[in-house]
Design a protein around this nucleic acid. Structure first.
Lengths: 93, 93
DNA sequence: TCCGTTGCTACAATTATTGTAGCATCACGC
DNA sequence: GCGTGATGCTACAATAATTGTAGCAACGGA
């Protein structure tokens, strides 16, 4: 599962998640990601672009490729699970 | 999505993935995870146990909790996606 | 031209991860 | 009881990743 290796990098899942609805500029993405340092974000974005999940639109701003949208679909159940996890397991933070 | 923060730590997804079928001992898990250092694995296992996804069975060996199995179910589509990703996008490594 | 934005990078400080070695504990065979 | 091999887990230094801050060049209005 090389995919797990890519996704298991810091901010990687989060980036895909934040781009779920609409493209974001690098600055917006940074804001959405708790002000994570641009160094990592840029690194992750490059990796995600090379993987074909994210692209930089002509008008600027990062968005999901069709392939990235497929991946996002895979994650939606995770979202619903996260909700239950938070309430059920008295999750901290 | 605090869940993404937890899952987005190195080896975290991989660990959950490797435990998908049956419980593994810490040594087996290490082997399954490309000989990752026991330091990280132990750290991740502790986090995953605190989160309620993984537990240490009485007879030894780490396994998924019922809650962890739910999470695993969420991941199965990811597996199928990974297959297509590898072939489609000429993914490296 | 000046201002604000874009994507992106440099660099030092801090964390996390790696790799190797080893601990205490328990079960088994002898 | 005594070794043997397994278990979960930890120490520690070396290395790699991440953070935080500052700033770059390029483009688009006003």
């Amino acid at each position: 599962m090389a995919l797990l290796d890519l996704l298991g990098r810091r901010w990687c899942l989060r980036i895909l998640w934040e781009l779920r609805d609409e493209p974001l500029t690098s600055r917006e993405l940074r804001t959405a990601c708790d002000e994570a340092s641009p160094t990592v974000l840029q690194a992750r974005l490059t990796e995600l672009r090379e993987a074909g999940f994210v692209e930089l639109g002509e008008g600027g701003g990062y968005g999901l490729t069709p392939f990235g949208r497929e991946l996002r679909e895979t994650f939606m159940p995770l979202h619903r699970f996260a909700e239950r996890w938070r309430s059920k397991s008295g999750a901290r933070v």
